[in-house]
Amino acid sequence: MPPIFAGFALETIEVPGARLRVRHGGAGPPVLLLHGHPRTHTTWHRVAPILARSHTVVCPDLPGFGGSSQPPDRPDHAGSSKRAKAAACLALMARLGHRRFAVAGHDRGSYTAFRLAMDHPGAVTHLAVLDGVPIIEALERCTERFARAWWHWFFYAQPVRPERAILADPDAWYGGDPVAMGLENHADFRAAIHDPAVVHGMLEDYRAGLGVDRAHDAADRAAGRQLACPLLCLWSARDDLEFLYGDVLAVWRRWATDLRGHAIDCGHHMAEEAPTDLAAALLDFFPRD
C-alpha cells in the first residue's frame, strides 16, 4: 500500500503564537483544509490527493490539535479562540507564499474556517463549511433536542473533569475504526488522543466556543457583517445537522449572500467516508487555473 499523502511535504512551521505541523503538496490555486475534532490533518488523506491534481493543498493540524503547539491557557480561553487560530492559519499560508486562498473546514475546523473568512476577507476567496453553522446560531437553537444530541459541548466545557474522565480510557471515549479511517490516519489520531496535552487543547477549543467565539459571532452579527466570499455549505446526510436545524442553508442565509450547498450521503466524518463526493463538490466550488 502506498503511503498516505504521497508527494506531499510534512513540515513544522513557526508562525507568531503557534508552531504548526502541516502537510502540503500539489500545484495550482491554493486551498487550506482544516480538520475537526478529534482528528488531525490526516483525516484529509483520501481527499487531499484528489484536490492536489489541480490545486496546492495545505493541511495543518489546528493549534491545540495533533502535532501542532498548544495555545496558552487563559481564563477566558481566548488562546483557543477561532480568531487566534484563524490568525495562525493566515500566517501559515503567508509563510507558504499564499496571500489569497480558498478554505474548507470540517466540524471544529469549520469554525476556524468561518472566522478566517470573517476576519480576513481580503485573504479568503472561497469558504466551504462542512457540517457546521456559526457557533452562535447553534447555541441559540439549544433546545432539548440540541442539548441531548450535542451534550458533549457542555460536558467538554466543564473545567478539568472531562480531561480526567477521557484520559482514563481515551480509546473508549473517542472510538475510531482503523479500517474505516485508514491505518495511518488512525495511528495519527490515536497518538493525538493519548497525549494529555492534546486532549486538553481539544477541549479548550470547545470551552472557547461557548464563550469567546460566541461573543465574536455576536459582535459580527450585531454589526451586520457578512461573509465577503462565496460560501459552500455541505453536510452529512446521516449526521444530525438537518435533524437539529431543519433547513441548514436557511441558518446561513443571514451570514452569506452568495450561498449554496447540499447534503452528502455519509456519516459525520465526511472526508473519510465520502472522499470522492466531497472532493468533487469542493472542486466544483473552488477556483481553477
Partner: peptide, 13 residues
Amino acid sequence: VTAKRALDYYHWL
C-alpha cells in the same frame, strides 16, 4: 433548556 442551562446541568446529559 438553553445553552447556559445545558452547561450548568451537563451531568444530566
